[in-house]
Nucleic acid binder design. Structure first.
Length: 480
RNA sequence: GGCCCUAUCGUCUAACGGUUUAGGACGUAGCCCUCUCAAGGCUGAAAUACGGGUUCGAUUCCCGUUAGGGCUACCA
């Protein structure tokens, strides 16, 4: 009977969800769904000093926004809770004590000052910094006594002095690390909290995690984790270490070189579909030439075998393109729902739904993110007050003004104000005036929208309606 | 410094020893379409880091060099 697939995303609540974190969460989620397994959210808040208020709620909300829902986790029932590490302290104490009794871990009473001094000496001697194992061979009775008497200290794991460890990573194959480069890692801090290394192993085992899918930064410490599994006598899960996400200069993706919080992209008006699609492709591909994927498509096709090994640069240009693609696929009604709050915020009076839908239909192939509708299509909601300077120089002169006066007069008489009839009126006028249609089209667009770019003029005019068109045409005479 | 990982167009990537004049996408250049801008279509420039092996044959396997990244905390 094969083990059921159970994976987890285990962030620490130190701020906003990072795009790298989102990708780790996404891959875990996709892997779980693809294999009909469970996806668990666990909060790793063992560092009291780095805790950020509201970070957990923010994290969950961002995952929810992205469409990544978890089966077990904080605020959800599950058989393996609690899912927040700070609520599991007794579990870690019990387990670390087992390690001490078994001779696999020991009390260490070295002060931070001594540790610091040792490190400095090692550095001065150009030795690799590591704990000098000062307390490793303290007699058990002595250390138990000192502990009982309340002496402050930590518990460290005992790493074998010689030998090496080889483990298999689904993405990277065999990785070998010599025991001698491994430190006697602290497992339990003096504040009674476990370190990541203890907590992750205990929880992954207790929560029956089958595959540990996490960032590459954990690769060097994986041997310590495996060692702990062995010390406990537990079965070791499978590991998959994901390549890192990079800045354009190929350093680890960070603030300062652009936005790294998923929330930032959300605020900029990127679609969740585009973000998810884009993030998924940073390190994974389906093996063929398809690029447009919905979350369901990803679930269907995602496998760890097709995840790459090398870091991927987060390239906004491609995200923009993907966002455009998803925007085109998205029903106008949904775009409208996303757009309305932005319009309200910009002070645009409430529009009727059919009108808004028509504006979206006309503009959606010309925008990259949702706020572009507000920035580029404001003239659909109010008369222009400014006119493009270059456009004025190019298209606005006595001739065009005169022509537009005539155009306004004729349009005012049109009974059925449709794209076709408007175009007919304009082209006939152009012919009569013996000028090219462009000589009327460009100044008309300028007068109606204040801009030199935009959707097809006749469609735009139909949508604006006769009254508005005639009014703006006449108004432009005075304003320009 | 030590250890580990990685290395195909500017970027994301395909190729799992031969079907390859190394394919696609973004971006970029040009053309077409056209009332502008987009969208769309077509065309172009653009890569196997370097050096050794192994092999009849290496982008693909091995070694080294170089470069980049990660780790090296009582942070995760």
């Amino acid at each position: 009977m094969p083990q059921p697939t159970r994976v987890r995303f285990a962030p620490s609540p130190t701020g906003f969800l990072h795009v790298g974190g989102l990708r780790t969460a996404l891959y875990n989620f996709l892997f779980a769904r693809h294999n009909s397994g469970q996806f668990i959210l666990r909060i790793e808040d063992t560092d009291q000093s780095r805790k950020v208020e509201g970070a957990v709620e923010n994290l969950i909300e961002t995952l929810r926004w992205a469409g990544i829902d978890f089966d077990e986790g904080p605020g959800r029932t599950g058989d393996f809770g609690p899912y927040t590490q700070s609520e599991r302290l007794p579990i870690y104490h019990e387990h670390v004590n087992r390690l001490v009794s078994g001779g696999h871990a020991y009390y260490c009473f070295c002060t931070p000052e001594r540790l610091d001094q040792v490190r400095k000496q090692q550095q001065a001697m150009k030795l690799p910094p590591a704990y000098d194992r000062h307390c490793r061979d303290l007699p058990r009775e002595e250390s138990e006594k000192r502990h009982r008497e309340g002496e402050s200290g930590v518990i460290r794991m005992k790493v074998p002095i010689g030998g090496e460890m080889t483990f298999e990573d689904i993405i990277r194959g065999n990785v070998t690390i010599a025991h001698k480069v491994l430190d006697d890692q602290v497992l339990l801090k003096s504040d009674g909290f476990p370190t990541y290394h203890l907590a992750v192993v205990v929880d992954d085992h207790l929560m029956k995690i089958s595959h540990v899918i996490r960032g590459e930064e954990w690769l060097p410490s994986t041997p310590k984790h495996i060692m702990l599994y062995k010390y406990f006598g537990w079965e070791v899960p499978q590991f998959a270490h994901l390549p890192l996400l990079l800045n354009p200069d190929r350093s680890k993706l960070s603030k300062r070189q652009g936005d790294v919080a998923v929330e930032d992209y959300r605020k900029k008006g990127y679609l969740r579909e585009a973000i998810v699609n884009f993030i998924a492709f940073l390190g994974w591909n389906p093996g063929d030439e398809r690029e447009l994927f919905t979350l369901d498509d990803l679930i269907r096709d995602f496998t760890l075998e097709r995840v790459g090994k090398s870091g991927a640069v987060f390239n906004v240009e491609k995200l923009n393109w993907l966002n455009q693609q998803h925007l085109r696929l998205k029903p106008e009604k949904e775009i409208s729902a996303l757009l309305k709050p932005l319009l309200a915020e910009a002070g645009v009076p409430e529009q009727s739904e059919p009108y808004l839908l028509s504006v979206i239909a006309l503009m959606k192939e010309r925008v990259t993110v949702i706020p572009d509708f507000v920035d580029f299509a404001g003239y659909f909601f109010s008369d222009p007050t400014e006119y493009d300077e270059k456009g004025k120089q190019k298209h606005w002169n006595e001739g065009s003004k005169k022509a537009l006066v005539a155009l306004a007069d004729r349009l005012a008489l049109v009974a059925s104000f449709t794209t076709q009839s408007i175009e007919e009126v304009l082209r006939i006028l152009a012919e009569e005036l013996n000028v090219s249609a462009g000589k009327l089209i460009h100044p008309t667009r300028l007068a109606l929208s204040g801009r030199v770019v935009g959707p097809g003029l006749f469609e735009m005019m139909e949508l604006l309606g006769k009254d508005t068109v005639v009014r703006r045409l006449r108004r432009a005479m005075e304003l320009m």
